[in-house]
Design a protein around this nucleic acid. Structure first.
Lengths: 309, 309
DNA sequence: TCAATCATTTGTCCTAGACAATGTATGGGT
DNA sequence: ACCCATACATTGTCTAGGACAAATGATTGA
């Protein structure tokens, strides 16, 4: 083995940047052409090599786009202006009675696994599952995501946090595991969406409402979703999209699925990713907020004449 | 919703085909150019529209490629030859004394969730965790993978199986959760490897050996693995590779990680993916079989003078 | 104030060429 | 018979700039 394996890469190739940022190769190239950013080096073969600092900045831009800013503006800004924008918090969405998020963030920051695990579990027991999901977990995930985009947290802390959260949900759900209930809802994500936390949160909310959930895990192709829904006699299919998923792809995927799914089976979609979808999709129920899930469920029940037990 | 669901799916756009098949847009275009397949229609705007039947065939080709066939051959074949190839079994690998795998496969095939869940849990209790992992779970995963590649099982059944397996492991591990133990082992995968089942199996094996595992979830960048190992004071980092991960990439990744990781922290690697790595890597302990994990652990303990409790 | 129209922004698709990485076959030496 | 190096074939990904439609913002009129 050659000992001169230099690790500090001069930059990441375009495919890695696509994977890291979620921005397509086409988008990266067209941004460079139109806005003059990013400005990757080239390797001996003329292929782009993105400096790590620029990848960080792309992540920051992506995050700000998710908050509603437009690419054209963001890409014209310099570092300082970008930083200023990033630090302007949208607003302290301190709902009254909400738990002190800063305390939680401190636990994440110090990666104190045991304390975090206990605290999460205690909070769930204290507030109840629904309140825990809406008032604690959802804001916390947002905060962790923001902190990560500001480089205040590393991937390590984010992963650790996710693992503990997942453990809490799995523990609770393992002891609830319903054998029946209605409607029967199939939970999954489309190919390319690998985040399962949204599915676990939705499963938790549904289980306490006496819904029978079928958790399929992430990344199911469309025709398999259709087959699964029929074989499991699902009344509805519920998809989850994270903010990383391209809204256009999500909309197209749901149109594809709606077309192949029997009309009797409802199609719901939740997660941060659907907030970016403005246009309603025919025959699809979009659930940008948790509350919408309850409304949607209630509507289904009234239409099908079934009441919760 | 209209009952006369017309099915004029003239075809899926290229982005949908990419999502469904996992073949990149570039690959789809270059196949069309080189091999004359697929042959998408064009919409009014000149954009490709793939017929559903061709998408199915692309999936079949993809499966055969995973079995080792080369695209150039497959794309030249007609439907019949492709089907014949698809149905040719590699061989039935039946170890004597193993549990009746066919019975298990039947449960997976019929997607009887409740029965499968109960059966898995019962088997774990009956055989013990280590025996369950080695003699039941590992062969079953292999069988399911094979069956999928022969198109006898769909993604749906595979996902459902994974979910139930994961549930069993999480349930068991939740009630074991150690607060101490030695060595301290960090469990994760490199970017691009998204399979977590291997990590859960290793965690299960380690926990009963009084090891303190830190589960980090999949896809951690190398510098974050290093940071995590230091902050969590890990004695070892254990990576998992599925067979889908390119052996060359895996080897390179481990060399990179070994270089950045303090010498005092061991590096282990398990999973089907390491079986394909022939050359030993300096300072890395390759564990192609489960037994190797025990050997490796015993060696670490003797070298560090610590015995299991 | 709201709705309709026009203008701009923005992501994705197109073509066709190039090349590196990987896999396979061939040759020569133990 | 085995192994290693070299030559050849295969295959995925990258490049370039042009084009266009869907989404968004601005402007006008009722």
């Amino acid at each position: 083995m050659s000992s001169e394996t230099v690790f500090p890469v001069r930059g990441l190739p375009i495919a890695s940047v696509e994977r890291e940022t979620g921005l397509s190769k086409d988008t990266l190239r067209v941004w460079e052409r139109r806005y003059g950013f990013p400005t990757p080096e080239r390797d001996a073969n003329g292929e782009r090599l993105y400096a790590p600092a620029q990848v960080q900045r792309l992540l920051q831009i992506k995050r700000l786009m998710d908050r509603g800013h437009r690419p054209g503006k963001l890409l014209a800004l310099d570092d300082a202006a970008l930083q200023a924008l990033d630090e302007s918090r949208p607003e302290a969405s301190g709902r009254p009675g909400a738990p002190p998020l800063d305390t939680w963030m401190q636990l994440v920051r110090t990666h104190d696994s045991d304390a975090l695990q206990r605290a999460l579990y205690r909070e769930m027991v204290k507030r109840g599952l629904a309140g825990f999901v809406q008032d604690t977990v959802a804001p916390l995930i947002a905060r962790v995501g923001e902190a990560w985009s500001r480089n205040e947290l590393g991937i390590f802390e984010e992963h650790l946090f996710s693992q503990h959260l997942e453990k809490v949900f799995r523990t609770v759900l393992a002891n609830l595991s319903p054998q029946q209930g209605s409607p029967r809802v199939l939970l999954t994500t489309l190919s390319g969406e690998e985040h399962t936390m949204g599915l676990l949160m939705v499963e938790a909310l549904l289980v306490v409402e006496d819904v029978y959930p079928v958790l399929l895990g992430p990344q199911t192709p469309i025709d398999e979703i259709v087959r699964a829904a029929q074989l499991k006699q699902a009344d509805a299919v519920c998809l989850s999209f994270s903010s990383a998923y391209s809204p256009a792809l999500a909309a197209q995927g749901m149109r594809d699925l709606r077309q192949m799914l029997p009309a009797g089976i409802a199609l719901w979609a939740g997660g941060y990713g659907v907030k970016a979808i403005r246009k309603p999709i025919d025959g699809v129920c979009l659930l940008p907020e948790f509350q919408d899930l309850y409304d949607c469920l209630a509507r289904w029940r009234s239409e099908h004449g079934r009441q919760p037990a």
